[in-house]
């Protein structure tokens, strides 16, 4: 009988405490694994210096984070979604359906995407066109559209070393891939003139040409990495001939193992990205559920602290970790102070 009594009392305690502990006193953050380290750094400093508990920060991906944000209003839903790409109309629609009327869009800075190879390998100086000609499924050769015949980087561009083509690029679930596709592959497709050829072949259909540009070869030269940058690094050390795609902050923490390549003649650094010289970069965002401000203690303070000059400014710890600080940070700070929700997407 004691067994029965024990289990009954345990269930009772669980039920009572479930109703008693509804008031959440910590900020809950979820989303992009690119923004995750920045958010943890801020959360840690916030917990240290403020009287509020340290916010809980989860990874899981930009899309998953935005979906969780839009699940509804209430203390068992998250307060902030980190995102390495801009929110989509479908997310906003989902939010509206679930009663999340107002969200604030906060841009924390920019992140560079770098191309790096093994530290002991040769130097590389790429252009987007090189990457397009190396990885695209079909390229233009002597005026005709042919399946990609290139085998080494020297085939792509005689100025590059004669090293076999092999690239580890982020898988399609990563926000980084979107930027890679748009700013490297499609850009290279345009500058190499292939876009025009595709358009002519498709009878002037721009979307079809765009899709053709983004189709990557499937013969094992371009390898999707679905894990994170640590996996790319591990694969790179197993295949020293490969080129990997990394975030700038990851590269900065592993400069003793990686040799970074230039893109369009520019070395990726915090400065060159801030100046807009380095072509492959993207803004990082987080989205705040406005209905939770004033309900969850410390939420507004956390958001304000995140975008403060002490944190996100050019001298702050986030910049030290590899975030390119936003030149328009002052405007963002004002927006957060006034709690301005974001307007419709343009």
């Amino acid at each position: 009988m004691s067994v029965m009594k024990l289990s009954a009392s345990v269930i009772a305690i669980a039920a009572v405490s479930a109703t008693a502990a509804m008031a959440r006193d910590n900020v809950q953050v979820s989303g992009s694994s690119t923004v995750l380290p920045y958010a943890t750094i801020v959360a840690e400093a916030f917990g240290e210096n403020f009287d509020f508990p340290t916010p809980v920060v989860e990874g899981g991906g930009s899309g998953a984070g935005r979906k969780k944000l839009c699940e509804g209003v209430g203390e068992n839903t998250i307060d902030i979604a980190n995102s390495s790409s801009r929110i989509k109309q479908s997310d906003i629609d989902l939010c509206t359906t679930n009663g999340v009327a107002e969200i604030m869009e906060v841009r924390i800075g920019y992140d560079g995407i770098v191309f790096a190879s093994d530290i002991n390998g040769p130097e590389f100086a790429f252009t987007p066109a090189d990457w397009y000609n190396a990885l695209a499924a079909e390229v233009v050769k002597d005026g005709a559209i042919v399946a990609n015949p290139n085998k080494t980087w020297a085939d792509v561009n005689a100025a590059l070393p004669a090293q076999a083509l092999l690239a580890f690029i982020p898988g399609t679930k990563h926000g980084t891939r979107e930027v890679f596709d748009e700013k490297v592959i499609v850009e290279g497709c345009e500058t190499s003139g292939a876009m025009e050829a595709f358009k002519a072949a498709a009878g002037g259909d721009e979307d079809a040409a765009h899709d053709k540009c983004m189709a990557l070869r499937t013969d094992g030269v371009s390898v999707d990495v679905d894990g994170d940058y640590t996996e790319t690094l591990a694969r790179l050390s197993a295949n020293p001939n490969a080129i990997g795609v990394f975030g700038l902050s990851f590269y900065q923490n592993n400069t003793d193992k990686l040799r970074v390549a230039t893109m369009g003649g520019v070395i990726p650094t915090v400065e060159s990205i801030a100046a807009g010289d380095y072509p492959v970069s993207r803004p990082l965002f987080f989205y705040v559920k406005k209905a939770h401000i004033g309900v969850i203690p410390g939420l507004k303070e956390f958001v304000e602290f995140f975008v403060s000059d002490d944190m996100a400014g050019p001298e702050g710890p986030l910049a030290a970790y590899g975030l390119v600080s936003d030149p328009e940070l002052a405007a963002t700070q004002q927006m957060v102070a006034d709690e301005v929700p974001m307007g419709p997407l343009n």
């Binding site: 979820s30 959360a43 840690e44 508990p53 989860e58 990874g59």
Partner: peptide
């Protein structure tokens, strides 16, 4: 269930 998170407290 959100337990794969950065929890400092």
């Amino acid at each position: 269930i959100g337990m794969v998170a950065f929890v400092k407290d």
